[in-house]
Simulated assay, not measured.
Amino acid sequence: MDSFAPRDGDQDNPEKVPDFVETMIYNSTEGVMMTGRYASKEEAKKKGNVINNVGWWFKPWFYQHAQTALKKGEFVEYIPTREYYHRHTRCLYWEGKLILPFADQWWFRFLLGWMMPPKVSLLKATQGEAIRNYYHEMHVIQDMLVPLYKVGDALEWVHKEMEVYPLWLCPHRLFKLPVKTMVYPEPGFEHQHRQGDTSYAQMYTDVGVYYSPGPVLRGEVFDGADAVRRMEDWLVENRGFQPQYAVSELNEKKFWRMFDADLYEHCRKKYEAVGTFMSVYYKSKKGRKTEKEVQEAEQAHLETAYAEAN
């Protein structure tokens, strides 16, 4: 991933940095890195160029198509922009393999591939409590936003503690802003002159962890909740962040060690959201949030706010 991050800080030079960078790691020793640049239709249609309409229902799933590079080596193809944006939609990255194990077979793709992907909201609505708990304990859907120089450590941690494959990697820049938001770069990063960093932004990488862990697939004991909790602790210790679409296992005090709450709480109080809208912590914590639980937490915030005002 860092091979596409200039060492001279010239991050905005299109000659040095591609428009898209993505990596999929299939096991502890194999992975495929892809780069992409916008191209015109005229260029794509030149003689000898390969145009791949990956969005067609009968096409192989994108992560499996990319995996063929491990055998045939580096190759170049042109993908229509909209289809590239939705390259992981049909197979939900690789989660589709768990939902319908045979959905990647050629006969299913040809006959019924147009039905993919299943509507996630419908799947959740029809889940029973037992299935929901099973997914929570035996399945991982998490992202780890880590500094670029920590990616190797993050991959080793995931392999040792979860053994989830494939993994998805995507670069992400955190900008140094006039005010400190919930997610922010490391203090003093601009003085370290690390690869990928500039004076105004630090290069991070999103490590996507989506699948059933190796121990679960082998029928071994695995505590998913504890694994996620340890992952979050690792992120706190290594200046990483957990995107808030995912379930958090941290208590509220530890949660706000990962994120900076000052501006967030200031805005909630200024616009009178406290007591009206649920805090982001309660939106992402594990389990159903009872009305009483949320009201008690919000009341505590209100009492703190009044105490500060007095």
Rank of each mutant, 00 (worst) to 15 (best):
P6W: 13
R7E: 15
D10H: 13
P18M: 08
N27G: 03
Y38G: 06
E43Q: 10
A44R: 00
N52H: 06
N53Y: 13
P60E: 12
A69G: 04
L70W: 09
V76I: 15
Y78D: 08
T81D: 06
H86P: 01
Y93S: 01
E95T: 12
P101A: 02
W107P: 04
L111I: 11
G113R: 02
L123C: 09
T126E: 08
Q127Y: 15
E129N: 14
E137M: 12
V140F: 02
M144F: 14
Y165T: 01
W168I: 09
G188D: 14
H191C: 01
R194V: 05
G196E: 02
G208W: 03
Y211E: 15
P215W: 11
E220I: 04
E220M: 00
D226Y: 06
A227W: 07
V228D: 01
R230E: 13
R230Y: 12
W234V: 08
W234D: 14
V236D: 13
E237L: 12
G240D: 00
Q242M: 13
E252G: 04
K253Q: 11
M258Q: 09
M258I: 10
R268I: 12
Y281T: 05
Y281S: 14
Y282H: 11
G287H: 07
E296W: 05
A297D: 04
A297C: 03
Q299S: 09
H301Y: 09
L302Y: 07
T304R: 15
A307H: 15
